[in-house]
Design a protein around this nucleic acid. Structure first.
Lengths: 344, 344
DNA sequence: TTGTATGCGTTATCAT
DNA sequence: ATGATAACGCATACAA
């Protein structure tokens, strides 16, 4: 059914006044007679008048809308980030337009384009897994379009960033395993082109080195986050001549199937293999064994992301210098990594 | 930084032609000289021209956008539904505007209002947990604004619906527990005002009755989906004088903390308590024990939802009769409900 | 094939 | 306090 919404023109005609008067009344501007104002407001209510946001935005050349692009909202981290971003944006009087790339580089490009056409005033982006060319987002930066990257970023992009110290976090996680008696520690990493994954591998290597443990490439396996591949890589890792007695995993979402596969193979967690992973998904507390995980301050990250973005949006004159905000992570220790350590 | 995007006016001026010619060239209309078209397209590319979608939509009085309102995207079921809805909408040339209500009745109201103002051409809605008054949704139906409800609906709302037979599904789940030797079966339900929860409780009761098992209200406990309450209700349920030896749970998201609490209490699953739940969250396959769960055909539900909606959108003349599409569910049997049954 | 004029629903700048 | 009128960026019916 074709809908014909009521406009200020309709209200004006009904009341025999001009549309500018109606507009003023509806917007609560001061210079207007109380009687006319009341009449307008009453009629608007009665007709269930809804201002046309398109027209409003077009006329004001402002949308007060920010575009958010994430890989996938079915990952806990991203849906939680969206929630905190939305919350912070709302507080500041902005609304949010979300796009999922489904980890696709092409959809990332079209998402940016669609949001540009929708006249968003800025972008908050976490790169897709398959993105290895950054021209599309660098273009935003070059045009001085407000932009903040979070979590999945790239060094080369000249933009503000909200991230965690992945290297330090992985170092902390790995050292925790070492302290719990692990001697051969593996790393179930993300896709090889993913910066944050590589940074975490670095931190892992540093921890091994510091504690005089052998650093061997065969103990670092990459998976593409799918269940099938995760299980395959897990089995490959645990089938090494000398399988690891501890594994750092790139995320809880990977840890669930991975640990499942280990158990199927008859391995006990943490006795045979201790595990620590990233993201602190709500389910991880209830998993068996409960997962030790690195948690990121999602709430503050959302707030910070929006803050850095609006700083750029509000700067009407000159471009704002890029800022990188590195947030603190926390190691949440649970059963998957805890074992009695014989102190000789 | 204030951005001043390039418009067709800029292109027209640059090329010394009229804006209508530019408009035609850009839209690939036939009646235009190849040379002018090429010139326009080249310049547009060079300037990285992005058509203003607001202006476009306003001029055409069409947005080809549908509004989707869901309780929360961090629930697997809803983020998966959003994905399939988006996919189907995209196929049909529509884009999607998403709002999360965070289970709040008030945010549901404001979401509808915001989407109306954004000129969406129709709504796909799953009601919030706290919604017990349907006036805001019924108003949409009365105004013949295209509308489809899914999953969380209400009988009284006169709209098209895409749902599953919750009663039959719960019946199936409960009977499965009975077949696996359960004699006292409990139900960890959702909020008492949630229709789908009550329907599932009905199916559960029917199954008990059919198999001559006692139906007692104390075995049905409601929780509000939060972890804390879930654990509290679980402990209450398992602290009954004669605790259940089988429990049907309203969703996997509830099952995770609930089973955790049971294990903490020393109960073995499925030996002491067999469990079956709803939604077949991807994690459930990897949980310990792997969760038996009722799965809903999310892919087809998304497609069907969009199909029913666009049917209404495309009907320019008269209102379309409401349709209710009941989809098939599937019981995915895993370890949490499987036990050796002594056949006497 | 191209240009002119009008409208989409609203805001905003002038007058009055 | 109110009303005309010109934007906003684009589409489109009509003229040329």
């Amino acid at each position: 059914m074709k809908i014909t919404p009521v406009t200020i023109k309709d209200i004006a005609r009904s009341l025999n006044i001009s549309i500018s008067t109606v507009s003023r009344a509806l917007r609560g501007l001061p210079e207007i007679h109380p009687d006319t104002r009341n009449a307008v407001i009453r009629l608007a209510e009665e007709l269930d008048y809804q201002p046309n946001q398109l027209a409003k935005n077009l006329a004001k050349s402002r949308t007060r809308t920010i575009g958010v692009i994430v890989p996938n909202l079915s990952y806990y981290f991203f849906s939680a980030m969206l929630n905190s971003i939305e919350e912070a944006a709302l507080q500041a009087g902005y609304s949010v337009l979300v796009c999922q790339t489904n980890e696709s580089y092409l959809r990332e490009i079209t998402s940016i384009q669609n949001l540009l056409r929708s006249q968003v005033e800025g972008f908050i982006i976490s790169l897709s897994r398959d993105t290895d060319n950054y021209e599309h987002v660098e273009r935003l930066a070059r045009k001085n379009i407000p932009l903040v990257l979070f979590d999945r970023y790239a060094e080369s992009i000249d933009a503000s960033k909200v991230i965690v110290d992945n290297k330090a976090a992985a170092f902390k996680a790995t050292e925790h395993l070492i302290e719990n008696g692990c001697q051969r520690i593996g790393f179930l990493a993300g896709p090889a082109q993913l910066l944050l994954s590589n940074q975490r591998v670095e931190g892992y290597r540093d921890a091994l080195t510091k504690h005089n443990l052998l650093v061997e490439n065969q103990y670092v396996l990459h998976c593409d986050y799918t269940q099938e591949d995760t299980i395959m890589q897990t089995l490959a890792l645990m089938s090494l001549p000398r399988p690891p007695d501890g594994v750092v995993m790139i995320s809880d979402r990977v840890a669930f199937p991975s640990i499942y596969a280990m158990k199927q193979k008859g391995l006990r967690i943490p006795e045979d293999v201790a595990v620590v992973s990233f993201n602190n998904d709500p389910v991880s507390a209830f998993f068996s064994p409960a997962l030790t995980s690195i948690s990121q301050p999602i709430q503050e990250m959302g707030i910070e992301t929006v803050r850095l973005l609006l700083k750029q949006v509000d700067a009407t004159d000159s471009p704002v210098p890029r800022e990188t905000k590195v947030m603190e992570t926390q190691l949440i220790v649970r059963a998957s990594s805890l074992r009695a350590v014989s102190t000789i």
